[in-house]
Nucleic acid binder design. Structure first.
Lengths: 215, 215
DNA sequence: AGTTGTGAAGGTATTCACAGCG
DNA sequence: CGCTGTGAATACCTTCACAACT
């Protein structure tokens, strides 16, 4: 019931892996997942055991991809719910999401885009409507948008975040290199290339010290 | 010396926070950092105590921003070292990095960009050279590039990753929605909006259950 | 055979609580 | 005093090892 955060992260990635796996019928074993992701098969089995369903996802030859995916979605509260998101800031980064394939199979959907530059709003094409920033409050409320993907320039990051909170947004995926301060109850998820590169470096430094404990 | 992974992540973000903090002279207290980031001040102090410097960063009124930043960089092995990175795939997402501000103060630098579409390579402008993909091996070796930022379309993700490994890349920041399989010793850091949104949802669900333990 | 599922052991990280210092 | 720094206690996550099932 109470899923550890690292477990949740792995399961979420596992869900993505299952979504993009072509052969949806033949079972996938923990060993196979290990081989694909690098996580120990032990850990994967433990992770799966935290899922709260009992529709027998697993047989002697592995886990049923479809049932497993469903179970993950169910425990994450991602079935029959679609969270509406908006992109805020349609510069190079923001507009990159206009044709991003990753939302396809997911429980999230892009419902609007905002930019203070009216020109951009008119020129760019998307499957969902784009608006000038001053319509933000109205649109977010009317459409029922819960999350924002923040892609504005650094100088505007904090101010825009505050504005989003006022509009009723409860979660922000922050693509700017800024650290945002928001009131309690609002969640921020920072997505930063620099941090990712830092993690890589730290991880590589660690494994180098380990002088191959396995293989 | 051996820094816990979560600690490393926090310190890395803290470094970013210090970099962008305007007032570089007045000390910053753990309580202030807590207020900005949401991490308990206890944890922050513990984190800072793992840094291996002895130049007295902290006084009775808080930590000296400049010295603290330097200490973090030093323990991360990020002083006097600059890791060279390349962008692979110069579509909307990839080209968004061509003028991304975040690399400025960091220990990472963009040294090359690659795309199989020769047109793009010629049209796009950047502070660093862009090459057609077939020059990848030669350029990566010559320039001494260690990391790749992968922004190719999903269909090419796995193949390109394998090729990068052959070129001697040891770490990949993966912006595609695909789960990549790479040999041991190569590190992948997945950056996915979908996962970020998933984390937000999980976190929000968790805090809702907690019925405010603090305030 | 081969693979899952899980209690128990082991290892990490966080939180507590208080000493120490300006 | 207010703030940091840190051993000790707690909570958390992972790994192990083996039972159970096909």
């Amino acid at each position: 019931m109470n899923i550890p955060k690292p477990t949740a992260e792995r399961l979420s990635q596992l869900a993505r892996l299952l979504e993009q796996r072509k052969n949806k019928n033949i079972p996938i074993s923990s060993a196979e997942i290990e081989q694909l992701t690098g996580w120990p098969s032990n850990t994967i089995r433990k992770d799966i055991s935290t899922l709260d369903m009992r529709t027998q996802i697993s047989t002697t030859s592995g886990h049923d991809p479809v049932k497993l995916l469903e179970a993950i979605r169910k425990t994450f509260g991602l079935t029959n719910v679609v969270f509406k998101c908006c992109i805020v800031g349609l510069g190079r980064l923001g507009s990159a999401f206009l044709d991003y394939a990753g939302f396809q199979e997911s429980s999230f959907t892009l419902a609007a885009g905002f930019d203070s530059n009216v020109n951009r709003v008119e020129i760019l094409k998307a499957d969902f409507p784009l608006y000038p920033t001053f319509k933000m409050k109205e649109v977010i409320a009317r459409v029922g948008i819960t999350y924002a993907i923040l892609c504005v320039p650094p100088t505007q990051a904090q101010a825009t975040a505050e504005r989003l909170v006022e509009c009723g947004i409860t979660g922000i995926v922050n693509f700017t290199p800024c650290i945002l301060s928001v009131p309690q109850g609002i969640e921020i998820e920072n997505v930063s290339v620099i941090d990712a590169l830092g993690s890589l470096t730290a991880r590589l430094a660690a494994t180098k010290t380990k002088t191959r404990s396995e293989l």
